[in-house]
Simulated assay, not measured.
Amino acid sequence: MPLTIATWNINSVRLRIEAVARFVDSHRPDVLCLQETKCMDGQFPLADVKKMGFDHVAIHGQKGYHGVAIFSRHALKDVDRRGFCDKADARHIAVTLADGPAAGTRIHNFYVPAGGDEPDPAINPKFAHKLAFLDEMEAWDGLRVADGPTRSILVGDLNIAPLEHDVWSSKQLAKVVSHTPLERRRLTEVARAGGWLDMMRELTPEPEKLYTWWSYRSPDWAAADKGRRLDHVWVSPSLAPAMRGFEVVRGARGWDRPSDHAPVVARLDF
């Protein structure tokens, strides 16, 4: 039986709740993971989410910044909200699907720090925070999925485009935060340490370009197409046979008051 899981950095769920509803109506994901929800748990628009058909919701928010959420048509259990780098940032939430075709599957939703503008941890605390966050991801036993039959999915805005063709020009962006050699190497090491498969690249190998983000600073973003693949779907090796396809819903980037990220929808068959 199929399961569709979507990930989207929404850049304020209250501001863009109508866009969320539009996306859900057109693509009908079974599970939707949002990042950068930017609201406290008590302010979350849960009534609107229920109207979309999601009876099961797990949220981890804070005032004005960050925030992650998981909406599901299937029951959830074992909700975990992990802190990183001794900060109270709401950047992670995990759940296990309790019923449906993928019952028992663990889902992690991440919003990795962006890292600021200067790719030097000695002078930029935001970049140092990003690297420390990746260090903790790599060291966490809860993200090690290579051995055994464990079924796990990791999605989110990881704020790094790790491969050459994940950006419009690898050469021109080599010193730009999100595609520096150090970040690319560190994210690859996180995935390797955990045993994760990059589902998008497993199904669409390089040199095909893949983008999920286009800057607000580019009014002609569609024509220029200077994008980056910052949003990811990773799966445990046990789910490799289940991978069926994915879609970057690029059209959503052109909606009224858009997020600068497009939703990514992954399809698996259990």
Rank of each mutant, 00 (worst) to 15 (best):
T7S: 15
R14G: 03
R16P: 04
E18H: 12
E18R: 15
A19K: 06
A21E: 11
V24F: 04
R28F: 01
D30I: 02
V31W: 00
C33G: 11
L34R: 03
C39V: 13
M40T: 15
D41C: 12
Q43C: 07
Q43E: 13
L46Q: 14
G53H: 10
I59D: 03
V68K: 10
A69C: 14
I70C: 13
R73W: 04
A75W: 06
D78L: 05
V79R: 15
R81W: 06
G83H: 11
C85S: 11
K87C: 08
A88V: 09
A90G: 13
A94C: 10
A94D: 09
V95F: 00
P101K: 06
I107R: 08
F110C: 10
F110T: 05
Y111N: 04
D117F: 10
D117Y: 10
E118D: 13
D120Q: 12
D120G: 09
H129K: 06
H129L: 15
K130D: 07
L131V: 08
D135C: 11
M137L: 15
E138Y: 05
E138A: 15
G142M: 02
L143C: 07
R144C: 12
A146K: 13
D147C: 01
G148W: 04
T150E: 13
S152C: 13
N159P: 11
N159Q: 08
L163R: 06
E164T: 14
V167T: 14
W168A: 12
S169D: 12
S170T: 03
K175C: 12
K175V: 05
K175A: 14
V176E: 02
S178W: 00
H179I: 01
H179P: 04
T180N: 09
P181H: 10
L182K: 12
R184W: 06
R186K: 15
R186H: 11
A193P: 07
G195K: 09
E202I: 09
E206Q: 11
T212M: 01
T212C: 02
W213A: 12
W221N: 04
G227Y: 01
D231Y: 01
D231E: 08
S236C: 00
P237M: 06
S238P: 02
A240C: 13
A240G: 06
A240P: 04
A242T: 14
F246P: 00
V248S: 07
V248Q: 08
R253N: 07
G254L: 11
R257D: 15
S259M: 01
A262I: 03
A266N: 07
